[in-house]
Amino acid sequence: MNKNGSAFGWVQKFAFAFGFVVSAPLVGWAQGVTDLAIRVTATSFQVGIPGRYVITVVNSGAAPTEGEIGVIADLAPGLAFHSSAGTWQCGPSENGALCTTSASIRAGQSSTFSFTVSVAREAIPRASSVFRLRYGPDLRPTNNTSVKTTSVRPSRRPMPTFTSSPTFPPNRPTWTPTRTLSPTISPTPSITRTPTPTATPIPATTNLSLSKAVSGRFVVGTNGTYILTVSNLGPNATNLPVVVTDTLPSGLSFVAATGTGWSCRGTGSSVECVYSDPLPVGTTTTITLTVGVGSGAYPTVTNVATLSYPADPDQSNNFVRRPTSVRR
């Protein structure tokens, strides 16, 4: 054993400095005691991210430890105990954190543990925490304190809040950490419902016919009228829309189109009318089409109209051409 680095070497230097005689009983006592020292390391901290302290307790004495060893951490403002790792038992205390162990540390050996702290904005720009080692039979208490200063960087991340409530029984320091966390409530996910498709009815087969007649005279500068008639020749009533399209020739312009059950609109030279109600067998329905007669229609024009129904087996009677005489 190196006497200069041992408890005996320390006693020998002390005795020499003060003129004491190192007797045999004193040598035996020095060779049977422990000398603990504390070392603390940490990297830089960032607000919102737990920081980590690593604590090492070294036994440079001549005998192993017996009984409980404690480390009290007086944490800097803005730091709060979070969690620990290692064989030591750690928890929050009145000023920061308290860690203890009853495991023996042999002479020349060390014991290392760590704990993390939450970092708040109050710790910016640096945090200085004091770590104090407590062991009754320690020969030299001057190396039982360590001050660790750590730089602290800001962060935009929100910092969780931890509330601790320590308790200390008479013989053994213990703690009961209480952590209060704000619950995160996930928003209720929106449910997209797929609409139930509407069943398309099977077209009822039936024979429709289209006819067109002129009502009154067509005179340049006045309105003329066509009557379009749709007839259901059977054998079934319609169950899908019936569409009539009238294409106006040059010289005629759309004015209006009406009919019971019909919905009509005119776009340019095209007029479209839709009949959505069922049309029974043997019945007819009419459209009154009013057009403006221009000079370009003189002396005659031919108006063409078509009928469309998905289940019409005979489309030869779905097309009509109507020559029309025009007077001045």
Rank of each mutant, 00 (worst) to 15 (best):
A63K: 01
V152R: 02
I69G: 02
P169W: 01
G216W: 07
R106W: 00
P203H: 05
T205P: 00
L98Y: 06
S276W: 05
T285E: 11
N144K: 04
I55H: 03
S215F: 02
S104C: 00
A30M: 07
S164F: 14
F45I: 05
T225N: 14
L139H: 13
P310G: 07
P25H: 00
R156E: 14
P203F: 00
A213K: 13
A17K: 04
T288V: 14
L210I: 03
A80D: 15
G268Q: 08
D312E: 10
W10E: 09
A97N: 04
L79D: 05
T176F: 04
A97L: 07
G32P: 01
S83E: 13
D312I: 10
V271R: 08
V274D: 06
A120H: 14
N317I: 02
P77R: 08
A107V: 04
E68P: 07
P173I: 07
F45N: 04
A256N: 15
T286M: 13
N303Y: 00
S165V: 10
T205R: 06
V293Y: 03
V21K: 13
L252E: 08
N144C: 10
Y53L: 01
G234A: 08
S118L: 15
T206Y: 02
T43F: 09
E68K: 05
G292I: 08
G51R: 02
T34M: 06
S276G: 09
D312A: 05
V119Q: 06
T302S: 15
V274N: 12
S84T: 11
S129G: 12
P173Y: 06
S253G: 15
F319R: 14
T43Y: 08
F8A: 09
T260S: 15
T247D: 14
N95T: 10
V291W: 00
V40E: 06
T285G: 11
A30G: 10
C99Q: 00
P299I: 00
T192Y: 07
D35T: 02
E272G: 05
F8D: 05
S128V: 05
N232P: 11
V214F: 02
P195I: 04
P310L: 04
Q89F: 11
Y135D: 08
L279N: 04
R153D: 12
P310H: 08
V117F: 06
S114C: 08
S83W: 12
G108K: 01
N232L: 06
P158G: 13
S165R: 12
S263Q: 15
Y275F: 15
P160G: 03
E94I: 01
K13W: 08
V21C: 06
Y135T: 03
P166F: 08
R132W: 02
V220E: 03
R52A: 07
S84P: 07
L139M: 12
F14V: 14
P280E: 09
A24F: 09
A256V: 01
D314F: 13
Q109H: 11
P177R: 03
T116I: 02
T286H: 09
R132D: 14
I124W: 00
L98F: 07
P154S: 09
P249A: 00
A85S: 14
D312Q: 05
Q12G: 02
R328F: 12
V304P: 06
N95H: 14
D277W: 09
